[in-house]
Design a protein around this nucleic acid. Structure first.
Lengths: 340, 340
DNA sequence: GAAAGTTTCCAAAGCGCTTTGGCTGACAAT
DNA sequence: ATTGTCAGCCAAAGCGCTTTGGAAACTTTC
């Protein structure tokens, strides 16, 4: 069932039917109703390829996904997807994933935009002065950055959590408990979120005139193994920290294992706070000692981003609006007073 | 730059240019070369919307993704995506995710197919007599099932790992070590893979004339917390098992925690084997006691599925070919002889 | 009651590609 | 010299939608 048939059946022109269906004003209310009825009754659905060819709109949002032998997709991505799906489901919005050689995403970005395959782009895990943002801006396609990038000479739309404040408050809490040597096990330091987190820790320390020496910072890919190694190396050095702030629950698993291997106890010998992105399959409450966390649901962010992307596509949202979400600090048993 | 302009510039008809580019025979070699050159030089790329409208081919593969407030996307999906990306990247194949109300995927399947949005479908996590497979079959769109479904009265193309053999050999190994009460912590029992795994355990036990009583089986969503609970309830009952076979590394985390909470030790008091889907961020070697596993990379499966899907789209693969991958049994420290 | 607006609808021209159904000219066969 | 064949090319018709540029019919205005 296509437009032509439907028009014929209603004894109207394609023009009128199309307009009636798309809410244009030059159609009488009665005709509009007739058309809408018939469309529903016959299950008419405009062919998206044809519509796309005619309008240039795709009805999809795009994500250029880094891929290649050595590239692992972030497990957080699934949570983002769940959130995006929650929103998109109700709005018949699809997401197209275009795999690109990691490092050369540009080609794929250009292809996707030139081909009008998508109406808007989702950009995640931005780095400093991220070229993808510059590109999207310059290609003039709607987009939203999940996270932030610094060093760009223009404003851009984004949604981020307040990583700096989160890690600041976690660190401050540890300081209040008397800790002085606080270590940070961070994610990949080329990622902006990691920079912000380190900054948060530093600021809290600075307020007490303390510093964050490089010997107390580790920046690594967020795996259990890396959490373990980082912790071993931190605790086995001369001036071992009495508290650790950790960028992910997955790494925190490794931290806990290392602490145990060293015959130490949380929170007696070491206090631990980790950032929790809210996975359904791993909860801070289910750590041997319930984990204190800075918490922010990636899934919720996914919902919101889908919503904003949809708004940008339909022109309801414009300009460089940035949204920064506060992060909860949830105190559980994994922190305690520093030992004298 | 579109076909028309390119044709004009070459002083050829659109027909010839189109044919030259698409490898049709009725074009002289020389013309073909001229056309190919010019296309490359001017960076001509056929507009996919137009092509799709004309051919009905989309150049994309689809995945109808269950979504909704209470639905969590499987963390394994990321690994699958990484694999798919590895292949698709080199072939300019995109993946479109269409979120659907969990439980009513049918509407979305129909929409996606009717709209010719995708050329092939990926179907994952099949259940018994899965309706999605029936639907895809009946809609006549190429597809591949990741896993297997029983109770269907037709053959279908799939890729699965040999879950039954994997769990059979794991169980047999435990039996050889002298274990008699072996428990199974399984995934959601409506999933076919879970059924196969249970069957594998049962078969191994049956060979020794042992049974798998319901009291030694748990079927739960694969979270750490559920692994913990299942283990507690298994070990705290009268006839506690001396070995556990577990369907996922994530649940195994919970198993380990529960064992420790009960003051027991692996492998002295309990032997443990888990299935490892090969996550980059959680490895069986990094368990307190290195975990014995049945191992099969979901990522590799993703690559292969992308490849087969591409083959099916281009007509190189047809029919109901099923592929069953063997699973490695990797022995590490988490198993030991049963206590007398 | 004619002029000027309004409302409601339509025919037809794209959007950029593929594909059908020729046409042309060169060469071989008769 | 005539016919047949075939390689190589083309014009034009879709694919199913949106949108431009009218054109009737119907109101309102003076």
């Amino acid at each position: 069932m296509n437009l032509k048939q439907l028009a014929l059946m209603l004894d109207l022109s394609q023009t009128t039917v199309s307009r009636a269906l798309n809410g244009y004003p030059e159609v009488s209310e009665e005709t509009r109703r007739r058309v809408a009825d018939a469309a529903k009754r016959h299950g008419y659905r405009p062919n998206p390829s044809a519509r796309r060819l005619a309008t240039g709109k795709a009805g999809m949002i795009g994500y250029v996904m880094p891929a290649g032998g050595s590239v692992d997709i972030d497990p957080h991505f699934v949570e983002f997807l769940s959130g995006l799906g929650d929103y998109a489901r109700a709005h018949e919005l699809d997401l197209v994933l275009s795999p690109a050689e990691a490092g050369d995403e540009e080609t794929t970005y250009r292809r996707v935009v030139a081909n009008k395959q998508v109406d808007a782009l989702y950009i995640s895990a931005p780095r400093h002065a991220d070229g993808r943002i510059v590109l999207a801006q310059q290609l003039g396609i709607p987009y939203i950055v999940h996270g932030r990038s610094e060093g760009l000479d223009f404003e851009y739309p984004f949604l981020d959590i307040d990583n700096e404040a989160a890690f600041h408050s976690a660190t401050r809490l540890l300081l209040q408990l008397g800790h002085k040597r606080i270590a940070l096990i961070n994610g990949d330091e080329t990622q902006t979120f990691a920079i912000f987190r380190e900054r948060g820790v530093q600021r809290a320390l600075a307020a007490r005139e303390l510093a964050l020496p490089p010997s107390l910072v580790r920046s690594v890919a967020m795996t259990e193994e890396n959490g373990y190694r980082a912790t071993r190396s931190l605790l086995e050095q001369g001036e071992a920290p009495t508290a650790i702030v950790c960028s992910s629950l997955i790494m925190a698993l490794g931290v806990v294992r290392a602490v145990r291997d060293l015959g130490l106890t949380i929170p007696r010998d070491l206090s631990l706070v980790a950032h929790d992105d809210v996975f359904p399959w791993l909860k801070p409450e289910s750590f041997p000692v319930p984990l204190s966390t800075t918490r922010s649901s990636i899934r919720a962010a996914g919902q919101r981003i889908a919503e904003r992307l949809a708004a940008r596509i339909s022109g309801l949202e414009t300009g460089a609006r940035g949204e920064i979400w506060p992060v909860d600090l949830v105190v559980r048993g994994s922190i305690g007073g520093a030992r004298a």
